[in-house]
């Protein structure tokens, strides 16, 4: 096994292209578990930790460009106002030690359906910035990035440069069910984002399908009902029946399995409850913000 340690982004992309057998490692919170448990033995490790560009974030035209190597701890500290959903999700990632090392880019790279960052990225309409030495940069919407269980849209010569997330134009919420009150992998997770600027609702579902996914029908349904009732303008109360109907539609978008962490039926049920509650909290925040 080789250890490749580029110090610039260009060098990283070159090494990625030259060594298809290399496994990129950032915070190490997924990769090292696989190594320690003897699940993977890649030909090389491609350490992205020395590439300074990856550890930066900045605002750009209403979007936050979050370098792939920014750890969760910094998302929590720096971006609670601009990316509240992602910051809430980041707070639920593993332990404080994990949040200091683990990165949103790493979450995307692993593409586990249980990754905590995915639902808020989906709800916010984030775009993944991918790069290769040969073809330069391409942008892939988060919703198209996840292809299957732990599979994503990266080509063998590509790396994740950043994720572009629209700064929140309205309230966002994130909920995650685990069977312990800390340091737990999601049994199911849900994120929602209100986009009052365009009368839209965003959603993201975690741990309840082969990939993280949106609930498009639920989004359209809720946005439409809010529009029809003039609620975006009146900022009136969100009817309980509407919140519940939204929850049912979110659950309907999932296709979970039974596993050691929870049953498929429970995942559907909990999604409906979380979506109902999250939508209500987000809406209440929207009302208060008036």
């Amino acid at each position: 096994m080789d250890f490749l340690q580029p110090t610039t982004w260009a060098e990283a992309l070159t090494l990625r292209a030259e060594r298809p057998d290399a496994l990129p490692i950032a915070g190490g919170t997924d990769v090292m578990v696989d190594l320690n448990f003897d699940r993977r033995r890649p030909g090389a490790l491609l350490d992205l930790g020395r590439v300074a560009e990856l550890r930066e974030w900045g605002a750009d035209d209403g979007r936050i460009r979050l370098g792939a190597g920014v750890p969760y701890a910094r998302v929590i500290e720096d971006l609670g106002a601009q990316l509240p959903g992602l910051a809430m999700a980041s707070r639920t990632v593993g332990s404080p030690q994990i949040r200091i090392r683990g990165t949103v880019g790493g979450n995307l790279g692993s593409a586990s359906p249980a990754g905590d960052a995915h639902p808020p990225l989906l709800a916010a309409g984030a775009v993944v910035e991918i790069a290769s030495a040969a073809r330069g940069v391409r942008l892939v919407p988060a919703a198209e990035f996840y292809l299957g269980v732990k599979r994503n849209a990266l080509e063998p010569d590509e790396l994740i440069a950043a994720v572009l997330v629209p700064a929140a134009a309205g309230p966002q919420q994130f909920c995650k069910v685990g069977t312990r009150n800390a340091m737990v992998i999601a049994v199911s997770a849900f994120a929602c984002a209100l986009h009052p600027d365009r009368g839209a609702v965003g959603t993201g579902i975690g741990s309840a399908a082969p990939t993280p996914r949106r609930a498009p029908e639920a989004e359209t349904f809720l946005a439409g009902e809010l529009e029809a009732a003039g609620l975006w303008e009146s900022r009136g109360e969100l009817p309980e029946t509407l919140a519940a109907a939204f929850g049912e539609r979110v659950a309907a978008a999932a296709s979970p399995i039974d596993d050691v962490r929870g049953s498929a039926a429970y995942r559907l049920h909990s999604l409906a409850v979380m979506a109902r509650r999250a939508a209500t909290w987000a809406w209440n925040d929207y009302r208060k913000a008036a």
């Binding site: 809430m88 639920t92 994130f174 909920c175 995650k176 009150n181 409850v273 509650r277």
Partner: peptide
């Protein structure tokens, strides 16, 4: 609360 920072309830249920 049950669920803690998982933010699953604000007292509901």
């Amino acid at each position: 609360l049950p669920g803690a920072v998982g933010n699953t309830t604000h007292g509901e249920g």
